[in-house]
Design a protein around this nucleic acid. Structure first.
Length: 264
DNA sequence: ATGTCACTTTACAAGTGA
């Protein structure tokens, strides 16, 4: 079974590349972030034609999440109680087969000391509270998406440069750890071991991708029932190249989780 | 570190969020 997460930075701009991704990897589940469209404009018909059901939770211009799946999606939940920014479409949960899928687009935070950074910390706390209150960590769960947090210095191309900065600061890493303490494993790190990266996001500016200036902020977190089925977590770096596919790339690369099939 | 991109608008260039 394959689960993909991808911050598309506008699903309208990334339409052809999204359909190509579905054809290339034939995933079972895809979580998208930063779709940037209201639900009426979400390309659900094109996605259905490609063989995928979908649920979208979007808004105009900003944020927006969606889950695609070969199998029907059930127990869909939009947003979460206690969200410090309830007007922003950032969390979508659905059940696919035996798997509970929670798609998240974490508040960016702008910079340490910015009011948005305090919102980010509160938001991560609220999400951890919500999961503990509403989900069962003993079941197969994947919490995935753009966390806007590089969990450790292994997840940063230049730890000295990023030390204490937004996306890599200790307070946000502590909040992420709270989430893990509830009963999740960072599957990407489990697969990569003590190797740096693999990175999933590179700034559009300064030729950052070409220079290897990346961060691992798009994460696959899994409960124990998922972690025991872990085969691999890989980054589709090709998708980040300007030359691959139709139109421009997102600033994030897709992350592909592969799980062993359930013994039946 | 900031050489870009996508979005929006008493729009046709400039601010914003990332």
């Amino acid at each position: 079974m394959k689960v993909i997460t991808w911050n598309v930075n506008s699903v309208r701009q990334r339409g052809p590349r999204l359909l190509a991704l579905l054809a290339r990897h034939a995933p079972d589940v895809v979580c998208l972030q930063e779709t940037k469209v209201e639900d009426a404009d979400f390309p659900g018909a094109d996605i259905l034609e490609a063989g995928y059901h979908s649920v979208a939770f979007g808004q105009r211009a900003y944020n927006g999440v969606a889950i695609l799946a070969r199998e029907p999606l059930s127990d869909v939940r939009l947003g979460f109680r206690g969200d410090p920014v309830p007007g922003e479409a950032r969390v979508l949960a659905a059940t696919v087969g035996d798997l509970r899928v929670i798609d998240v687009y974490v508040v960016n935070g702008k910079g340490v000391g910015d009011p948005a950074y305090e919102v980010k910390l509160a938001w991560l706390d609220a999400l951890a509270d919500h999961l503990a209150a509403t989900e069962d960590a003993s079941r197969p769960i994947v919490v995935t998406g753009d966390f806007n947090v590089a969990p450790t210095d292994l997840d940063v191309h230049d730890p000295q440069l990023w030390a204490g900065k937004n996306l890599a600061s200790a307070p946000e890493r502590e909040r992420l750890q709270r989430l893990l303490d509830w009963g999740l494993m960072d599957l990407g790190r489990a697969h990569a071991g003590d190797q740096a990266g693999p990175f999933t996001w590179w700034d559009y500016r300064m030729g950052a991708f070409h220079r290897g200036w990346g961060l691992r902020i798009d994460l696959m977190l899994g409960s124990a029932a998922v972690a025991e089925r872990l085969v691999s977590v890989e980054v589709d770096r090709e998708e980040r190249k300007p030359t691959s596919g139709e139109g421009k790339p997102s600033d994030h690369a897709p992350v592909i989780l592969t799980l062993r099939d359930q013994p039946s």
